[in-house]
């Protein structure tokens, strides 16, 4: 009788792993040289609006120079820095608007820009849009913000 009770099926409590899946807005940066070459595996640091000196998130771009993150809801100007092999750039995005924001990745080292005409062409090529986009992601436990 006792063995039968122990073997009887019943609810399992306490250690179930759950995943909520939802759609959200995120920020994606695309870091590249003005030649078009991506900043692959570049160091990325993200700074929140109310603490602009301390990285809120760090990580690396992928092979195509892209990096995505979901701001934690603090509204205002977020700053994103990408660096690789002595080249660096800052980008900014204002977060909190109802519509997807836009940002521009600024100022990659550009030794090729030698005169006014060429510079305008290169500037037009290097400026890119960073569009908040909807994507699926897995919700992470609180306190894991250091991971991409």
């Amino acid at each position: 009788m006792a063995l039968a009770l122990l073997a009887a099926p019943g609810p399992v409590l306490g250690h179930a792993a759950l995943i909520d899946v939802m759609e959200t807005r995120a920020v994606t940066i695309h870091a590249r040289y003005d030649t078009g070459q991506p900043l692959a595996e570049a160091q990325v640091a993200v700074f929140a609006p109310d603490d602009p000196r301390t990285p809120w998130l760090t990580g690396r771009t992928d092979a195509d120079g892209r990096f995505s993150f979901v701001p934690d809801g603090r509204e205002g100007r977020w700053a994103i820095q990408a660096r690789q092999a002595g080249h660096g750039a800052m980008g900014y995005i204002t977060w909190g608007a109802a519509e997807p924001g836009e940002a521009t990745m600024l100022a990659l080292a550009s030794p090729a820009a030698t005169d006014g005409l060429q510079r305008l062409v290169l500037a037009a090529c290097v400026v890119w849009a960073c569009i908040s986009t909807a994507l699926y992601f897995r919700r992470r436990p609180a306190g894991h913000k250091g991971a991409r």
Partner: peptide, 14 residues
């Protein structure tokens, strides 16, 4: 002339 020598750290300048 034409060389981008001056920067701010790794940041770019016009």
């Amino acid at each position: 002339a034409g060389l981008h020598i001056g920067h701010v750290g790794e940041g770019h300048c016009a």
